[in-house]
Nucleic acid binder design. Structure first.
Lengths: 194, 194
DNA sequence: GTCTATAAGAGGATAGAC
DNA sequence: GTCTATCCTCTTATAGAC
């Protein structure tokens, strides 16, 4: 721990760092890590080059901080529907019908096609951790619905795959309809009333 | 039509063009269009810079030729399982259990996260065309299985989404198991014997 | 058809002033 | 903490010889 700087300066620094991080998260969602340049980040954040390289020594450090935070936020969102108190069937329904910007794609899933992400151990681990945890959350719900462990895991994987595939199709067609069709199709097969 | 050049030279040129195209297809599968450089293409193909820019005036022309061919090949593969003569249920089963390099990802689906592809009208149209046709093929199969048109389209979208999502999950986890789990989970829900 | 030389521009930093 | 100037490399070509 170093001595506290003047409060005003400290706050300004924290806010600058925060704005850089938010800008990086947005740009990485829109374009991926590979296609996002440090320049784009400092321009969108309204800060400057000096600030960016002060708070994040490399593009890698910035990307890792941004992706790590996005993963945490997405898992919090998933828990909000999958891990609350209602019946398992209702939780599955909530998760599958959650509002999503289908055409924009999954903030994390899209990174599996990003060369910079997959070539980097830490970034790849962040993406892997997201899906590992998400699949575990969903598996528990199907177990609580009465499925044996193996079947619960298969069914959870199918459900998460439908969401990820719905994103791919909606993005490819530039239309939110495929995500809706894919999730409604699964809900019918699961015999969960729409 | 221009006059035929000497046969030897013509063949060599055609073979060179072919090798460039194959190398581009491979590299685009592995890394996407954005991350694939002209240099990588001519090095992998065993040709040279002069040959590449002789056969393809720009990186865009090369990428479009490679992606267009990949889309055609993938649709031919899908038709092989979805559009043959057996019962609809068997065709669905064949499609869902077709051998796939799950960890490598879908040659076309992965392009939906590629900035260079999505920013270009022609490349985007090629990707869109692939999924439009694939969904149409699958919809017909579910209609032939007795589903009404709307339900058939939903179910087809769910099935294609499970494949695309299976790719995303297998890639994220570096493991072919999620693709297997996702497709087996869907087959059980569809009540098609494994 | 293929080769090599050259070049404009962007990306990802680093250095040192303020 | 932030700014500006500078630097090196890679990408995507173009030019002209062979």
């Amino acid at each position: 721990m170093s001595a506290s700087p003047a409060p005003g300066a400290s706050d300004r620094g924290a806010r600058t760092r925060e704005r850089l991080l938010v800008a990086a998260q947005e740009l990485i969602w829109e374009q991926g890590v590979s296609a996002t340049t440090p320049r784009q980040v400092w321009e969108r954040s309204g800060t400057g080059q000096g600030s960016l390289y002060h708070h994040f020594p490399t593009k890698h450090a910035l990307a890792l901080a941004a992706v790590t935070r996005t993963v945490r936020q997405m898992l919090d969102g998933a828990r909000a529907s999958l891990a609350h108190d209602s019946e398992p069937e209702e939780r599955v329904h909530d998760y599958l019908t959650r509002p999503r910007d289908a055409v924009a794609g999954c903030r994390v899933g899209r990174l599996t096609s990003d060369a910079t992400v997959m070539a980097d151990d830490e970034l790849r681990a962040a993406v892997r951790g997201y899906f590992t945890q998400l699949l575990d959350l969903a598996t528990v719900v199907f177990e609580e619905a009465g499925e044996p462990p193996e079947a619960a895991r298969r069914r959870a994987t199918t459900a998460v795959a439908v969401i990820q595939g719905g994103y791919v199709l909606s993005r490819a067609l530039g239309d939110p309809a495929p995500m809706r069709d894919a999730t409604e199709g699964l809900l019918q097969l699961l015999d969960i009333a729409d």
